[in-house]
Structures are given as C-alpha cells and as structure tokens.
Computed example of a mutant assay.
Amino acid sequence: MLQIQLPIYIIDAFTKELFKGNQAAVVPLDRWLPESVMQSIASENNLSETAFFVRNDAGVYEIRWFSPLKEIDFCGHATLASAYVVFNHLGEKGTIRFWAKAVNTIEVNEREDGLIEMSFPNRAPEKLSTIPEALQTGLSISPLEFHKNQQAYFAVYASEDDIKNVVPDLEKLKTLAPLDVVVTAPSKAYDFASRYFWPANGGVEDPVTGSIHAGLAPFWAKRLGKNDLIALQASARSGVLYCRVSEERIFISGACKAYLEGSISIPC
C-alpha cells in the first residue's frame, strides 16, 4: 500500500516551560485531506486539538481544528502553536493571517518580547436569567452568577480557590452540548483565573483554552476596569495568557515551547 508522509509538530502552547501549557499537534498541508482522515489523525494524536492548515493563493493560512472527538469551530492554543510552526519552521516572519469559517480572519504577530499575539473577535458573554438545571447542579461549588457566549457557559466565582476546588459532574455538563463550561474568578497573582470543562466536545478538562479568553478578557476588563490583563488557566498543566481588550477585537498573546518534530505515514 502506498503511503504519504506528512510533517507533524507537537507544541506546548501558552507556556515557556516544557510539559506545561496545552499541547497541540500541528500538521501543515499542501492540500486538504478528507475530513475523515483528519479526524482519524486527531483521534490518534489524542491531544486537545490537532490543527491542519493550507496556505491559499492569497498567502492566508486556512486552518481547521479537530479534537479527538470532533471538528472544533475555534481553537486558540492550536492557532498559537500553528503560528509558532509557521514562524519557526516555514520561514515566515512578522505578521501572518489565518482564516476559519467561524471566526473569519485571525491576524497573528511576532512580538519583540518573543510572545506571539493573536487577534480574535470580541466574544463577551451576556448574563443568564434562566439557568439550565444541568448547569446549576453540575458544579460541586455554586457560583455567584452565570453568563454565556457562543462557546460556553461562564460560572463566576468569588475566589481562585473556589475554581481550583470545584469538581464538575461531567455527565451533567455533557448534556449542555454544544456549549462547554468555563469557571472563573479573580486571581491572587494574576488578574483572573479559569478552568475549562468540555466533556461533550473534547475531553474532561482542557489544559489552556485560548479561544475562551475572547470572552473572559472582555468580561474581566469590564469588572476590573482595565484593558490589559494577565490570565492564569489553573489546570494541572497550567498556562499564562496576556490579554488586551479593544471594542471590536481581543488580543491574546502567549509563548510556546516545541516538544516534537516528526512525520506521520498515512495511506494515499
């Protein structure tokens, strides 16, 4: 059977330390593979996300993200990892653009301080007046309030200790699909902290979730009265995100650490 070789990179995103942050697999392509093949690769990788991208004739990188379970509309950490690969392995410098159907154009810049900055749409959440029962009973510690955006329910707590100690009932939270659940609170050492549960879309807990900060950053900017914030995602691996809020766009920056460069063989 004939095989084709595809490059693959595994990058720890939103961290300067190996084995921290969120792992993403990145597979650059010359042309799109069948969707079933991309899903099989992502399932085989068994990471939060595998990103695939193709550079089009306009020089824009069309990008798609797959969890082990399904294709995802929007993924920040795998976009950061993809940008790292483009800048460090594919010879691009300065500014690049990704495009995805759910979020349109994502402009990405190399910062002078070594961080990579991504421009996301502002996805500020709105407060919920009616709370789904599975959300009310699906977290072991009751939050102060609930909000929601296109991606997830937001459970807001008084302290970072609450979100570190909260235990999700994954079977209940799974019934909230297609939305996930983020828990968040002010942070002791940072501006705010969060954890992200996504049993219906990818797994138990996502280590670091760039996309949800397009909602978290404007929420906390309004609460804290500041537009430049540093966020902690308080998972077991943990990660740090640097956020800048404008009216229309949310700028999320982070570091990356390369873990693996190799190739995969698939039948053609």
Rank of each mutant, 00 (worst) to 15 (best):
I163E: 07
L241D: 08
I131V: 15
L69T: 13
G202A: 15
A155P: 05
V240P: 12
W32K: 08
G59Y: 04
T209D: 05
L135A: 06
R249N: 09
L29M: 08
V204F: 13
I11N: 10
I266C: 04
N88T: 08
V108Q: 01
D206T: 12
E44Y: 07
S67Y: 02
R64T: 04
C256H: 09
F192E: 07
N46Y: 07
I230M: 08
Q136G: 04
I116G: 00
L224N: 10
V26P: 10
R244H: 15
K222I: 07
E247R: 13
R64L: 09
S159L: 08
H213S: 05
E117A: 13
T184F: 02
F87N: 02
V167K: 14
P199L: 03
L33H: 09
W99N: 09
A231G: 06
N227H: 14
L115G: 10
R64Q: 14
A78G: 03
Y196E: 05
V86L: 03
D161P: 00
P178S: 07
L179V: 01
E107W: 00
L144D: 12
I250P: 06
P132E: 10
T50S: 13
V182C: 15
N109M: 12
Q39G: 07
F98S: 10
K222H: 09
D206N: 03
S140C: 11
A42R: 02
E117V: 06
Y84K: 07
K20T: 07
F53I: 05
C268A: 15
E62R: 09
T15V: 10
I266Q: 05
L224Q: 14
P125T: 11
D12L: 12
G239V: 12
S194G: 05
L216A: 00
P68F: 03
N109A: 04
D113N: 15
L232M: 13
F197N: 14
A185K: 02
N56L: 02
A13W: 00
L90I: 09
I63C: 01
A217Q: 00
V204I: 12
P28Y: 09
W32Q: 09
R237W: 07
E112C: 05
A51L: 12
F52I: 09
S67A: 13
D113V: 12
Y242D: 13
S211F: 06
E112W: 01
G91T: 01
N227L: 11
I72E: 13
A134Q: 15
D162Y: 01
R249C: 04
P168S: 10
G138K: 03
W32R: 11
Y61M: 11
G138V: 07
K148T: 12
I10V: 15
I106D: 08
E261T: 15
K16W: 02
A81S: 13
Q151K: 09
A81I: 04
S119D: 11
S235P: 01
P121H: 08
T137M: 14
W32H: 09
T15C: 14
S129I: 12
A134I: 03
T15L: 04
